[in-house]
Amino acid sequence: MVVFEPKIVMFCCNWCSYAGADLVGVGRLQYPTNTRVIRVMCSSRIQPTFILQALKDGADGVLVTGCHIGDCHYIDGNVYTEERMKNVVDAMKLLGLEGRVHLEWVSASEGPKFRETVTEFVEQIRALGLSPLRAE
């Protein structure tokens, strides 16, 4: 049987999670290749519309990552992100896309956490299956 390989859009902020991804690469840690990483300068750059757009364009899930609270390069950008993503996750519940959007803080030094985050999210989406927007 063919295993379902989900397509996942992943947002990484330049200063922490993107560097975290680099660390995974440098450390040669293996993780699933289902994510398409989009680098943004700060997680607060990510508008809710970006996520809706990604889902509309056929992503099965959207993973948003950024610096830990207190570590944001722009002081409190990720505080806004946290609030926004909470709302987006709520909106997903109403729309029937529960579980397809997730926020996680990953710092530049947390290579293994980056790997775990991606692996877990990929498994979660795999279990959920094809996005109803893609099935159309």
């Binding site: 757009q53 509309k56 927007l133 159309e136």
Partner: peptide, 11 residues
Amino acid sequence: ELADLMTQLGN
């Protein structure tokens, strides 16, 4: 965008 998603998501 939300309205657009609603048109595509039956439930």
